[in-house]
């Protein structure tokens, strides 16, 4: 069994190296090196301890798996940090791939390129213990009556506006930390995140955070899918997609997801 596995990895590595010479070769910023961007800071569970080099955390692990698949050894992966704005601003980029939970949307796709999705994120509602004690339930009716907060650079706002249609207009913040502060200040009742972020924020950043429920991603008309962002017209895109397909087919992507994003079970679906 063990030998088979080793053999598979060897084969994969070999195919990867082969692929590199055929696909990614000469298409990266620096020959022989894959430069990947993440957020500053990068959050759990996407990157553990803000140290993507360690390969710990879902996106860090996917990044190294992709690199390997495309024929880059771990030591040939370089990390840089960008904000969302840097990722979409015109002009040359200092990364080959940018992975920081970017939702793939048609509008964004006109300006930059996205890989095939590497994760389909259920949207989840975070609220406070007090709100739950006050009668908040994972039902549309209950959600409508809440005061909402969302992060500006995510796709959460249109989801709140279209799906939930709250009675009061939502407040909008720069990042999760500010959402946390506003919730603790009692200025908002609920926030919409992707499920892993909601779980982390509720458990770690908040003292009194609760994940109230999640939307069924398979039921959504356009599910929230994360893709690696690339320069518009990037020559690398076919290679990345090919590598992702291979990871999906081999079950490796699912394994990484199971390893890092497993606590999602037990969060009720919103009715």
């Amino acid at each position: 069994m063990k030998t088979i596995l080793t053999a598979t990895i060897l084969t994969l590595t070999a195919t990867g190296a082969f692929a590199a010479s055929h696909c990614a070769a000469g298409k990266t910023l620096t020959d022989g090196t894959l430069t990947i961007a993440t957020g500053n800071p990068a959050y759990y569970p996407w990157v553990i301890d803000d140290a993507p080099e360690a390969g710990q955390g879902f996106e860090a692990a996917v990044a190294y798996a992709l690199a390997e698949e495309m024929g880059f050894a771990a030591e040939n992966v370089t990390w840089v940090r960008t904000s969302f704005d840097e990722a979409i601003q015109p002009g040359a980029k200092d990364f080959d791939l940018n992975m920081q939970q970017f939702s793939i949307t048609a509008d964004r796709d006109r300006v930059v390129d996205f890989s095939a999705p590497y994760y389909t994120a259920p949207q989840a509602v975070m609220t406070t213990v007090e709100a739950v004690e006050g009668g908040a339930t994972p039902t549309m009716d209950s959600l409508k009556g809440m005061k909402w907060g969302v992060v500006a650079s995510t796709t959460a706002l249109p989801v709140v506006m279209e799906k939930i249609q709250p009675d009061q207009s939502p407040l909008v913040y720069d990042d999760n930390a500010n959402i946390t502060a506003a919730m603790q200040a009692g200025q908002i009742d609920a926030a919409l995140f992707d499920l892993p972020t909601a779980l982390f924020t509720a458990a770690v950043l908040m003292d009194n955070g609760v994940v109230l429920g999640q939307f069924d991603p398979s039921a959504a008309e356009s599910p929230d899918q994360f893709g690696a962002l690339m320069l518009e017209g990037s020559a690398l895109k076919p290679c990345v997609d090919e590598a992702l397909a291979a990871l999906t087919d081999s079950g490796k992507l699912a394994a990484i997801e199971a390893e890092w994003l497993q606590d999602a079970v037990g969060v009720p679906l919103i009715k």
Binding site: I88, T155, P170, L171, V172, Y173, N178
Partner: peptide
Amino acid sequence: IGPVEILRQAGIFKSL
């Protein structure tokens, strides 16, 4: 700190 005034609204559009 939350209010969606013009700069924030522009930021939301920029992001979307």
